[in-house]
Design a protein around this nucleic acid. Structure first.
Lengths: 343, 343
DNA sequence: TCGTTTACGGCAATCGTTTTCCTAGACTTT
DNA sequence: AAAGTCTAGGAAAACGATTGCCGTAAACGA
C-alpha cells in the first residue's frame, strides 16, 4: 500500500526546530549563498541549512508566488510541437529556463488566431511572468494588443516589426541559397515558400528573390507557392507546380520537411535529383542528411535560438534594455544540389 | 509606452462592489453553475457573475493552490520532445488537460536515469498533483520508488509491470508484423529493435518473435540489434547488420524514423525496397507515407494515448480505481512491403 | 403554537512566504 | 560620555482564496 506523502516541512517547522523566527529562515533560504551572512550568524545559517537539508525542505512556490506576485513561470506558444523545428527551439528554451530556476508552459496554437488568443489568455490566467511566441503572424495584430496591455513578451523563430525577437537571419539564409544556385547555374527556381503570414517564409523567399534580382534574374510569381511547412504541404505544393506544367531546374523549400515531401513527388514524376532538379531545404534537421539523397539545406541554430529567446525574456523582466537578435545561418551543401552535369 | 498591467481585481474587490462577503463570492465563483444557487440568491449570483465578467476577474491560481494544496498541474516527462511520437502523445495530453482546466509541465529526460530523477524532483517541487511518464525503463526502479512515496503517476507510451499505463498493444503490433511477413513469405528478418530498456522495443520484438516461432521460424539473435529509435540509430544499426554480412529479405524497425534511416542505408548498399528487402516501420508517422517509397507500418493511436493517459491520471487523483489500457494497433500496408516477385 | 428546516450568507482561520518596520545589545567615533 | 552604527534577528502584516462553523429569517410541519 502506498503510504501517504508526508506533509512537507515548512519554514515555520524549520524555524521552530532551529529556535529562530520564520523571517530568519526565509532570509537565509532565500538569499544567494554569499549574502546569507547578512542576515544571521554563521552558526545560525548552518543550523537552518542543515535542518532544511535533513528534512527535505522545498519551498512552496505557490505561497512564494502569492506573496511576491512573481511566478517564475513563462508561457511558450508554438504553432505545433510536432514540428521538429519548434520542438528543438523549445528544448533550448526549456534548457535555459531550467538553468535559471524558471518553469515553462508550452501550448500549441496551430497558427489559428482564435486559439492564439484563448490559449494566451489561459497562460495569463496562470500568472506567467512573460511569454515567448514562436507563432507570430505578420498579418495579425494580436501581439501588438498584448504589448499594449504591458505583457512582457519575446518572439522567436518568427519576427514581427515592433517586437523584440530572436530569430535566424532568414533573409540572409535566402540569399545564401540564391548564391548557391547562381554558382550552380540553376536559376529557374521554384519556391515552396511555406505560410504567407510567417516571417520565416517571407524573409527566406525575399532574400532569395532579391539576390537573384541583383544577378538580373527574376522569379515569376507562379513559381512561388505558399502551402505550409510540413511534408504534406510540400507534396501538395510540388504536385501543383508540376501539374501546372512548370519544369524548374531547382526547387527551394523554406523547410526541410516540405523539401522531403517535394522530393517524393519529384521522383514519382520521374525527375531525378540533383540531375534534373536541384533541391534545397531549410533548417538542417537530422532527416535532411538521412533521406535517400542527402539534402542541401541551410543550418539554423534552433536550439540556441530558444536559449537566447528565454534569456532575452529574462533580461526584459529584469527591466533591462533588450534588442532583437538574428542568428547567422549557414549553407550546408549535400548531394541534392551537387554540381554535376547540367542538362 | 506600454502601460502597466492594471492590478487584477480580486474576490475581495468583487465582494465590496457586490456588497457581500468574499466567502460568498468564492462560493459562487467556485461552484459549478448548477450548484451556485445553493449559496446565494439568484440575483446575488447574477450580480457577482456580471461584476466578475465586467472587471475581467480571473482567480489567482497561486492563492487557490496554497489554500487547497491542489495545484491543477501535472508534470509530463518524455524522453525527448523532438521525437515526433512523444510530441504527438504530449499533444493529446495537453488537449485533454486543457479541457479539464489542468496545466502541464513537460520535460525531457533524454532517457538518462539521473536526469529523470532530478527533473522529476523539480516537478515535485513545483507541487504537481501527479505525473505522467513517457520514458519508463524496464530496468530501473526509480518509478517504483516514486510510487512508494505515494506520488500519483501514470505511464504512457511505455509500460512497466506494477504500474498503471496507457500504451499501444505493442505485443500485438509485433505479431501483426510477423503475420504480414508470413503472408509475404519474407521471414528472414532483421529487427532494428530500438532501446533495450523500453517496453515498446521489447514487446514489439517479442510479439514478432513469438508469432514467427509459432510458425516454426526463429530469428537468430544476431539479427536483432538494439541501437535506438531515431533516424541516426536506424542508419547505424542497418549499417552494422549489412557490414556483418547479413542479407535479410525483410527488416522490421520498431520505429518509423529508424526505418527511414535503414532505408537510406539499404539503398546506398544497392538493395532495392521492396524487391530485395521488405521494410516495415512502426507508428505510422506522416513521414512513413511521404518518403521516397511509402512505408508499411503499424498505426498506433498516439494522440488518443496521451488523452487517455491524462484522463487516467485525473481519475487516479479523484481516488477512483484505474486500470492499464492497451490501445489496438493496426497494420498499414504500403509499397515498402508490397507483395511482388520474391527473388 | 412551537419546533424544525431551508435559504442565504457572514466570520475568521488558514495555506507558506516575503518583507517592512523594529530592537536590544555591542562597538565606534568624536 | 553621548551619539552613531552595526549585528543579528523578531513581529506582524500582507498576498488571495477556501471552507468549517455559525447566525438569522422565513417557511413549513404537526
Amino acid at each position: 500500500m502506498a503510504q501517504q506523502r508526508a506533509r512537507a516541512v515548512t519554514q515555520r517547522g524549520l524555524a521552530e526546530l532551529a529556535g529562530v523566527s520564520v523571517a530568519t529562515v526565509s532570509r537565509v533560504l532565500g538569499s544567494p549563498p554569499e549574502q546569507r551572512h547578512r542576515w544571521a550568524a554563521p552558526e545560525t545559517v548552518q543550523t537552518i541549512l542543515s535542518l532544511a537539508e535533513s528534512h527535505g525542505y522545498t519551498r512552496n512556490p505557490h505561497a512564494a508566488s502569492l506573496r511576491t506576485s512573481r511566478s517564475n513561470l513563462v508561457g511558450v506558444m508554438v504553432p505545433r510541437l510536432q514540428d521538429f523545428v519548434l520542438a528543438t527551439i523549445y528544448e533550448g528554451i526549456e534548457e535555459a529556463a531550467m538553468e535559471n530556476g524558471i518553469n515553462t508552459y508550452v501550448m500549441n496554437s496551430l497558427d489559428d488566431t482564435a486559439l492564439q488568443r484563448t490559449r494566451t489568455q489561459a497562460m495569463l490566467e496562470r500568472r506567467v511572468d512573460g511569454l515567448i511566441f514562436g507563432d507570430a503572424h505578420l498579418d495579425d495584430t494580436f501581439l501588438d494588443e498584448l504589448r499594449e496591455q504591458g505583457v512582457p513578451l519575446v518572439l522567436t523563430s518568427r519576427r514581427r516589426d515592433g517586437h523584440v525577437s530572436v530569430t535566424c537571419d532568414d533573409y540572409v539564409g535566402g540569399r545564401l541559397v540564391a548564391e548557391h544556385l547562381l554558382e550552380l547555374g540553376r536559376t529557374d527556381v521554384v519556391v515552396l515558400a511555406g505560410l504567407e503570414f510567417a516571417s520565416t517564409a517571407y524573409d527566406r523567399t525575399r532574400g532569395l528573390i532579391d539576390r537573384l534580382a541583383e544577378a538580373g534574374i527574376d522569379v515569376p510569381p507562379r513559381q512561388m507557392i505558399y502551402r505550409g511547412f510540413d511534408t504534406a504541404a510540400g507534396r501538395q505544393a510540388m504536385r501543383e507546380i508540376l501539374e501546372a506544367g512548370t519544369r524548374p531546374n531547382a526547387v527551394f523549400a523554406t523547410n526541410d520537411f516540405a523539401a522531403i515531401g517535394a522530393l517524393g513527388v519529384l521522383q514519382d514524376h520521374g525527375f531525378s535529383v540533383p540531375e534534373d532538379v536541384a533541391l534545397i531545404g531549410y533548417n538542417d534537421t537530422p532527416l535532411a542528411e538521412s533521406v535517400g539523397i542527402p539534402m542541401t539545406t541551410i543550418r539554423s541554430k534552433m536550439h540556441l535560438m530558444g536559449r537566447e529567446a528565454l534569456l532575452t525574456l529574462l533580461a526584459l523582466l529584469a527591466g533591462k534594455e533588450v534588442q532583437s537578435q538574428k542568428l547567422e545561418p549557414e549553407l550546408i551543401v549535400r548531394a541534392s544540389s551537387a554540381a554535376r552535369d547540367i542538362t
